[in-house]
């Protein structure tokens, strides 16, 4: 049976610290765009921490929610792509193939989660900042769309290692950069086709829900509510 990669985000553990955001930049060669482009909404964050204020002072609450590509099973980004750059893999990932992408940005329009980012310019790394770039991940050029891949390079690397050792992948062996960095362990990644995996167990939790569930996008990211105090 093929794997079906998914994630669980325990909002009761998440403290909004932003470690995942930086980890993602470090792992995935995500450029910084600078202040003037950021002001135009062109900053790229494959994962971001959203916040929701409720109530008025003094009875005010704030809730955090890390949002990355939800890797939907019925992904609105896929059917709109004229070049199949955005497509579904056998392991359930929403792949974005940069060299197929011609930059129509239809996918970003279709995505209800706003997790797709367009390279408006050639990314720049003043030297020697480029020495940090991860050779296991492509550097995207101007005119393509990019988004969270669930750190597919880490999935591949672990799968190659497991195959070389002639064994099955272990639950928890693959950690995308955000999951690895989270000190509160709010993020859990694994195979949803393995009912015993940590992520499967968490996804079945009665605290669990999907983001914008009623849109029918069938996300593979499950959020676990913070219990109401």
């Amino acid at each position: 049976m093929p794997h079906r990669w998914g994630m669980a985000v325990d909002l009761d553990r998440c403290t909004g610290c932003g470690a995942c955001v930086t980890a993602c930049h470090a792992e995935n060669n995500i450029p910084t765009v600078g202040d003037s482009q950021a002001a135009r909404g062109r900053a790229m964050h494959w994962i971001r921490v959203e916040r929701y204020w409720e109530g008025e002072y003094p009875d005010v609450t704030l809730k955090f929610r890390p949002v990355m590509c939800q890797q939907c099973d019925a992904a609105p980004c896929e059917p709109v792509c004229p070049t199949y750059a955005s497509h579904h893999t056998d392991e359930g990932l929403n792949a974005q193939i940069y060299n197929r992408c011609i930059g129509t940005r239809y996918c970003a329009n279709a995505c209800p989660y706003n997790v797709r980012f367009f390279d408006f310019f050639h990314p720049q790394w003043p030297k020697p900042l480029d020495a940090q770039l991860n050779p296991d991940v492509s550097v995207r050029e101007v005119g393509v769309m990019e988004k969270c891949t669930f750190c597919v390079q880490r999935i591949h690397a672990a799968a190659i290692d497991a195959k070389a050792a002639n064994r099955e992948l272990k639950d928890g062996e693959i950690q995308p950069a955000c999951v690895q960095s989270c000190s509160a362990k709010a993020l859990v990644f694994g195979d949803l086709n393995d009912p015993e995996s940590e992520v499967s167990k968490l996804s079945r939790s009665d605290r669990g829900h999907k983001l914008l569930d009623d849109l029918g996008t069938l996300p593979k990211v499950t959020y676990l509510n913070r219990p109401q105090a």
Partner: peptide, 23 residues
């Protein structure tokens, strides 16, 4: 050269995690 910083799993402080500033 260093490519990425993560927490050292056996360290009793970071226990494998690392904050945004550390990374």
């Amino acid at each position: 050269v260093a490519k990425k910083l993560e927490g050292l799993p056996k360290d009793p402080i970071s226990r494998g995690g690392l904050c945004a500033r550390g990374q």
